[in-house]
Amino acid sequence: MARFGLLLTCNGFANQNLASVMLFARAALNKGHEIDHLFLYQDAVYSVAAHTDLPADEPDLASELAQFCQQHAIALLFCITAAEKRGVVSDIRPARAGYIAAGLAEFAMRQVNIDKLVQF
């Protein structure tokens, strides 16, 4: 059994990485592997925006991902600096529920907890 860390670096609206990461995570958990954390960096932090407005017939993958991580007690972290630079969060703009502000330092330290890092 392996322990995984998952890293997202591209925009979750413009790409299929949120869907892919959930498929991967589900499959890994079903096989008895563990997932230590999911870290959003670079353009992936756009998924943290709480005020996105999606039509009802488009999947809200960012919310699904938060629910999924909560269900399975996976730390769902994002780089606060990357998010602030993009205007995704600020003092008056909280992060989407379920996403936890963290830093690169925390991501770096968590690397010792895992066997494999998979990037989406």
Binding site: Q42, A82, L104, A105, F107, A108, Q111
Partner: peptide
Amino acid sequence: SKGREALDLILAMAAVEH
């Protein structure tokens, strides 16, 4: 700025002795 954010990541990794 991808390279710039990669640099931050590199330094963060090195700072915790990887």
